[in-house]
Amino acid sequence: MRAFFHERQWAHDPKHFMANGAVLPNPEQPERIARLRTGAEAAGCAFETPADAGIAPIAAIHSSEYLTFLQTIHGRWQRIDGAGEEVIPNIHPANRSDGYPKSAVGQAGYHQADTACPISAGTWEAAYWAAQSAIAAADCLQAGVRAAYALARPPGHHAFADLAGGFCFLNNSAIAAERLLRAGHRPAVLDIDVHHGNGTQGIFYARRDVLTVSLHADPVRFYPFFWGHAQERGTGAGLGANVNLPLPRGTGDDAYLSELSRATERVQAFGASVLVVALGLDAFVGDPFKGLAITTEGFARIGAAIAELGLPTLFVQEGGYLCDALGDNLTSVLTGFQDA
């Protein structure tokens, strides 16, 4: 399986994270790269450095206002007397239609949904090349490759068109899906991260040309809380093109695979010609977020179930945090897919 990663993705090294009022080390550590790369190579992936496709494929998803913010905000932040090393919001608008301030502090609040997406000097560089990795992998599928893997770090599925959140800045899975759509494909995005892909849902929610399906821990008591409920089916032209399958906390392999079959049935009914898998590994029973209880063997079964669709498939890395089995879980899902 061809795979893509750029060394510049190491540049993002976030420090700040807050949970339940406590300031903690950020779980989205650069060390994830080393463990994921080892896991992918164990599954037979041969990594390539992505070419620079430019900003246009990214701007097809994200607003120019937001991209300007991401590229400039850290330098502007450092000019604030007494500012911290990372851009962290402390105020948010009540609505997206509220005023757009000139202040760096105000714009941080507008473009960052939470405190889990701190922006440092290397954030834009890393996010840009994570997106380029996903773009290069999408282009592989367009060229006739049956499967590819993008080690996209930082991840992306919580990023909306103009809003970062949950460790995410550029929505790599959405960028890849749009790239494939514009090349003539009919893409479906299948998100198997433990957290709902709220950014991906938001980007495509009023559209019928991209199907979005997400299996995740029930957000009634789990991040991202406000999105990911079963009644969210799309709006306008997109009504019926968004599918959420929230799962009870602690759901294990068998129950998960049963719901996954519902997801793949919707992909088939949509008539997808290509599949983008937002590949979160944090549904693992030993992941620090402890939302679901998928085993390493269960990930192989998930990979095999996805392969049964028979579609050209792009795996875009999303979550999956530091634990001893992180690399093994990636090996398992990719091997399960290939062996099937």
Rank of each mutant, 00 (worst) to 15 (best):
G199T: 10
G199Y: 00
T200I: 09
G202V: 10
I203G: 01
F204P: 00
A206Y: 06
A206M: 09
A206P: 01
R207C: 01
R207A: 06
D209S: 08
D209M: 07
D209T: 15
D209P: 01
V210D: 00
L211Y: 02
T212M: 04
T212K: 00
T212E: 00
S214M: 11
L215D: 02
H216K: 11
A217G: 11
A217V: 15
D218A: 11
P219M: 08
V220W: 05
R221F: 12
R221G: 11
Y223L: 04
P224I: 04
P224Y: 03
P224T: 09
F225P: 00
F226G: 09
W227P: 00
G228R: 07
G228M: 04
A230P: 07
A230Q: 13
E232T: 03
G236M: 06
A237Y: 10
A237E: 12
G238N: 03
L239N: 11
L239W: 12
G240R: 08
G240H: 06
G240W: 05
A241L: 00
A241H: 03
N242I: 13
V243Y: 00
N244W: 04
L245R: 07
P248T: 14
P248Y: 05
G250L: 13
G250F: 15
G250N: 06
T251F: 02
D253P: 01
A255D: 05
A255C: 06
A255T: 14
Y256F: 15
S258W: 04
E259H: 12
E259Y: 12
E259F: 14
